[in-house]
């Protein structure tokens, strides 16, 4: 990774305040860092350090109280709700700790869902979803429901779903938090291979083994960046 590489995202003096039962909570107190294209970052920190808040902001699920978040040159802080939704649908792949698959839909339908909101469903959609299911090793489970799959398989469906829009920017919120070590290894291999394709990945974790697989680790504490180290 070199300094001249283009930036996937640029975070400057990002602040986020919440009002919780009349009291203002400063979740982020000015966070700045750059994310070069193709980087693989892990964010760590104790609970309450602001890592989930940061990830929500990076995932365009929320807007900062102050500061700027440039995603591919556009300031997310200035977007309205519809633009945020569109950014989520088209440019960001999101993987959750609890998979967040819809129980009523099959594997293929779950994978397909972001396209539904990106408005890009066409004749080739199903083929593409099947291809992604194959990529994550679930080619033989296309019409299963999430409840018929193991946790690792569900997470792989979720990864396939996050890939369906071919995002350059992927976020993962403790993607291995609910998995055993074998499945954790599988998921991390999958993420590593996606990073190797050139996708930028930022994941939140509190496991050092997971962080060790990434190229760079940012540690947060009390809404500040404590350390930002590249391996």
């Amino acid at each position: 990774m070199t300094a001249v590489a283009t930036l996937a995202a640029s975070i400057r003096e990002l602040r986020k305040d919440y009002v919780l039962s009349g009291e203002t909570v400063h979740a982020l107190r000015g966070v700045s860092f750059d994310v070069p294209e193709g980087d693989y970052i892990s964010i760590m920190g104790p609970s309450g350090s602001g890592k989930s808040t940061l990830l929500n902001l990076l995932g365009c699920l929320d807007r900062p109280t102050a500061g700027s978040f440039l995603l591919g040159g556009e300031d997310v802080a200035k977007m309205n709700d519809d633009q945020l939704s569109e950014t989520r649908a088209k440019r960001i792949g999101f993987v959750f700790q609890s998979y967040n698959l819809l129980p009523a839909l099959t594997v293929v339908e779950n994978i397909e869902m972001p396209l539904y909101y990106g408005g890009r469903i066409d004749a080739g959609t199903r083929d593409r979803c099947v291809e992604l299911a194959n990529l994550v090793g679930l080619g033989n489970r296309l019409d299963h429901r999430p409840s018929q799959l193991s946790g690792g398989q569900q997470q792989r469906v979720a990864i396939a779903r996050s890939l369906v829009n071919d995002p350059r920017f992927m976020l993962a919120d403790e993607p291995t938090g609910n998995l055993d070590s074998v499945m954790t290894a599988e998921i991390l291999d999958l993420l590593a291979s996606l990073n190797a394709e050139g996708r930028t990945i930022i994941l939140v974790t509190h496991e050092n083994e997971v962080a060790a697989r990434t190229a760079r680790t940012i540690v947060l504490r009390d809404g500040h960046i404590l350390t930002d180290e590249r391996r």
């Binding site: 939704s85 569109e86 967040n100 869902m113 972001p114």
Partner: peptide, 10 residues
């Protein structure tokens, strides 16, 4: 929440 996170508009 899931649908919104995956890009559904209001």
């Amino acid at each position: 929440g899931i649908r919104r996170a995956l890009g559904a508009k209001r």
